[in-house]
Simulated scan of single mutants.
Amino acid sequence: MEQIDAIGLLCPLPVLKLRKRMAKLAAGAEVELRADDPAAMIDVPHFCNEAGHALLSVEETDAHTRYRLRKGG
């Protein structure tokens, strides 16, 4: 699974980093994004909805949030 560290990056950088990485992946590939920007809670689901990707899970930790996504086809 691809992992993207966007901790410390502010909107819109986490989603831009995610979009760039996902563009290179085959349909069905899974990605984990780690981000601590509160706006990512809105931006990541919106990005998935607009781009046709599946948001598999959102897990909050003390320091950041982990988003698991599957690239749409």
Rank of each mutant, 00 (worst) to 15 (best):
A54I: 03
P12N: 06
L56A: 04
K71R: 12
E59W: 03
G8T: 06
R70P: 02
H53G: 00
K20D: 14
E59T: 15
E32I: 15
G52W: 07
T61P: 00
G52D: 06
M1S: 11
M41C: 01
T61C: 03
A26H: 09
E60F: 04
D36V: 10
R70G: 03
T61H: 12
V31S: 03
L25H: 00
C48G: 02
K24D: 04
L33A: 04
L33V: 04
E32K: 13
F47G: 00
E60P: 02
L55C: 11
G8K: 10
Q3V: 14
G73W: 10
C11D: 06
P14C: 11
L56D: 02
H46Q: 11
V15R: 03
R19V: 01
P14V: 05
E60W: 00
A51V: 12
G28W: 07
L69E: 10
P38A: 11
P12R: 04
L13F: 11
I42S: 02
K71E: 02
L55D: 10
E50L: 14
A40V: 11
Y67F: 15
H64W: 15
E30G: 02
D5Q: 09
R70E: 14
A51M: 14
P45E: 14
E50G: 00
T65W: 07
G73E: 14
D62P: 00
E59P: 00
I4H: 02
G28F: 06
A35Q: 04
K24W: 04
L56R: 13
A35H: 08
A23Q: 15
C48W: 05
G73M: 07
L13E: 12
A39I: 15
V15A: 09
H46L: 15
L9E: 10
E32D: 03
R34A: 10
T65Y: 02
D43K: 01
R34S: 12
D36P: 05
C11W: 13
H64V: 01
H46Y: 10
E30R: 14
L18H: 07
L18W: 09
M1R: 11
G52Y: 10
D43S: 09
A39T: 14
L9M: 13
Y67S: 05
A26P: 00
G73D: 11
T65R: 04
M41K: 13
M22L: 12
V31L: 14
L16F: 06
A35S: 15
H53W: 03
D37G: 05
T65V: 15
L18D: 01
D5M: 08
L18E: 06
G73F: 09
T61K: 12
P38T: 08
V58A: 05
C11Q: 00
E60R: 15
A40G: 05
G72P: 00
P45G: 09
I42K: 09
R21K: 13
A27E: 10
I42G: 06
V15Y: 02
K20C: 11
L25A: 12
A29R: 04
M1T: 09
A40H: 08
K24H: 10
V44C: 05
M22S: 06
P45R: 13
D36A: 09
A6I: 04
D62G: 11
M1V: 11
D5R: 08
K20Y: 08
D37E: 15
